[in-house]
Simulated scan of single mutants.
Amino acid sequence: MEQTELLDLQGVAQPPRRMLRKHSGFSVETVRPDLGAAFSYDWTSNLHFCAYHDIVLEDGGIRAGDGAEDNRRDLRHTLTYVPRGARVSGWSSLSRRKNSFTAIYFDPASMREELGARFIERADEKVYYRSEEVEGYMRQWARLLAQDHSDGLYEEALGLVTVLAIHKASTYEFKAGRPLGRASLALVEEFIDENLGSDLTLSALAEITGLSRFHFSRAFKSATGETPYQRVLRRRMERAKLLMASGEMSINQIAECLGFQDASYFQRTFRSWVGMSVKEFRDRR
């Protein structure tokens, strides 16, 4: 039984395509094996693991912990949850379709501190179960990981609510965080305005207030009516309109100045947020 951080697929003719994002306390990946690939796995980890499946099998079986082998074939829209220290083993022969799974790996000690939640010490493994809430978050992750660009601030927040959703069915105590005072809020707003061109992270914003990322997100939305991600986007779009109105910078320069990885991503975001294209906005002057 091999212990690795990420689930290792053994015996594949060609290594699967893996799209991975790492953040403090958790990692998320989408794995896409070749059409009709066959593989096995025998794995344990010191991280909790939850996978969302978009997979149809020709044949296969999975065993988690001390449970019996499960031989279901159509795994679409199902989840598998394996807590740290539990063994998961099995084999799969995939159908000739575009199969994939998206998995989140997280450190329970780190998440306990972040969320103010005391999770039960020994959670049960769950194979091919359903949860609309967790599925919704994992489908968001699958779409994000398929994109060329990333947004650390949004992904940090999404990771935290995903972990909390995974554990909602477990017994935990939830401790409400303290509210965000006016002075702390002013410092956060100032930091955002001064760093719109940087890769702003939830960790950096939370550190200003002394709150965990999760409690900062809740407190910020309670105080402003917006998530930190929405506020940063709003300020970037407001700054973009000012820069475009001045006519002194190109679209590429404005995108770079506001922390966007490429001009096309900036233009898509601008249209979505402002309700018109960059060209339409400039033509109004």
Rank of each mutant, 00 (worst) to 15 (best):
F214K: 09
R182T: 01
G181P: 09
E194C: 07
G181W: 13
G152K: 14
F174Q: 10
L187W: 11
L158N: 03
R213W: 06
L164Y: 15
G159L: 01
R178K: 10
A183P: 05
E207W: 02
Q147T: 14
D199Q: 13
L144S: 10
G197Q: 02
A206F: 07
L205A: 07
S184D: 10
G210L: 00
D193W: 11
E194Y: 08
L187D: 04
K168L: 05
L160V: 15
T171E: 15
R143H: 12
L211H: 01
R143N: 15
G177Y: 02
D151P: 05
F174L: 03
A206V: 03
G152F: 09
D193Q: 05
E189P: 00
L202Q: 00
E207S: 07
T201F: 11
H149K: 15
I192E: 14
D151W: 11
T201G: 03
E173N: 09
S212L: 03
A183N: 12
A204N: 07
R213Q: 07
T209R: 00
L160K: 13
G197C: 01
A176G: 10
E207N: 10
F191G: 09
A157D: 04
N195T: 04
E155A: 08
A176V: 10
V161P: 11
A169Y: 08
T201E: 12
S212M: 03
L200D: 01
S150I: 01
G197N: 06
L180R: 14
N195K: 10
L153S: 04
G159N: 04
S212K: 02
D151S: 06
L200H: 10
R143W: 14
L164M: 13
T162R: 11
I166K: 05
D199A: 03
A169V: 13
Y154C: 08
G197K: 06
G152P: 03
S212W: 05
R178H: 10
E189R: 00
L145Q: 11
A169Q: 06
T201C: 05
H215Q: 06
A165H: 10
L196A: 13
L180E: 13
A204C: 06
L211Y: 08
R213G: 04
I192C: 03
R213K: 08
E190P: 02
S212H: 02
A206P: 01
Q147I: 14
A183C: 06
I166H: 12
T201Q: 14
L164G: 07
E207Y: 03
